[in-house]
């Protein structure tokens, strides 16, 4: 089994700060300074976020197979759970239907899940145009390898606010935050 963070305390802190920055500035591409070696198909960024935030209190869903399951369970201690009951989801390919995941309640919207979604590439270029809290005007983001119909499926949850799903796009060691408040417009 491959190791987790070289320095668990500092690795978790720097990964959390990167995620905090990414969610504060949706659409901005943030590099993770310290990533663990995770078994394929789990990418370095997704592995770092899972290690930084998951533990025995966070039911975790993933689609990575047996090696990934062993690695996540050993390093985080998180119980593996079906998608609808998971607080964190690590999707290395197309995720389960977004509307079927934990979205919280109007009184406790913080119970909505966090979806870590692996895509093939992230670029600060025309493709999606993002707006909402954390974005001064708009932010351009080009995502390669997003699941088919992802933008529409996510937008359908918008009406449920404050319930919702917060998504981290992960590619290599880079992440992009898409909190539930961000509005994505696809540009043609």
């Amino acid at each position: 089994m491959t190791p987790g963070f070289a320095e668990p305390v500092l690795g978790a802190q720097s990964s959390f700060r990167a995620m905090l920055h990414a969610l504060s500035h949706p659409g901005r591409i943030v590099a993770l300074p310290d990533v663990p070696q995770a078994p394929a198909p789990l990418g370095p960024a997704m592995a770092a976020l899972a290690l930084a935030l998951c533990d025995a209190d966070t039911p975790l869903w993933h689609d990575g197979g047996a090696a990934v399951a062993d690695w996540l369970r050993f390093h985080t201690g998180a119980p593996l759970a079906p998608a609808h009951a998971a607080r964190f989801l690590a999707a290395t390919s197309a995720p389960p239907a977004l509307a079927g995941l934990a979205l919280g309640s109007d009184e406790a919207p913080q119970d909505g899940a966090t979806l870590l979604l692996q895509v093939s590439a992230l670029e600060a270029a025309a493709g999606w145009s993002l707006s909402g809290p954390g974005i001064e005007t708009t932010t351009a983001l080009r995502v390669s390898g997003a699941p088919l119909g992802f933008v529409a499926e996510r937008a359908a949850l918008g009406a449920l606010f404050p319930r919702g799903l917060d998504i981290m796009l992960c590619a290599g060691r880079h992440i992009v935050g898409l909190p539930r408040t961000t509005i994505i417009r696809e540009e043609r």
């Binding site: 978790a12 959390f16 995620m19 905090l20 969610l23 504060s24 930084a52 935030l53 998951c54 533990d55 209190d57 966070t58 919207p109 913080q110 909505g112 966090t114 954390g134 404050p162 919702g164 917060d166 909190p179 539930r180 408040t181």
Partner: peptide, 13 residues
């Protein structure tokens, strides 16, 4: 970790 998870959700809402 518990506080960090709360902070991230707070930023999202």
């Amino acid at each position: 970790r518990m506080i960090r998870r709360a902070l991230l959700k707070a930023v999202c809402i």
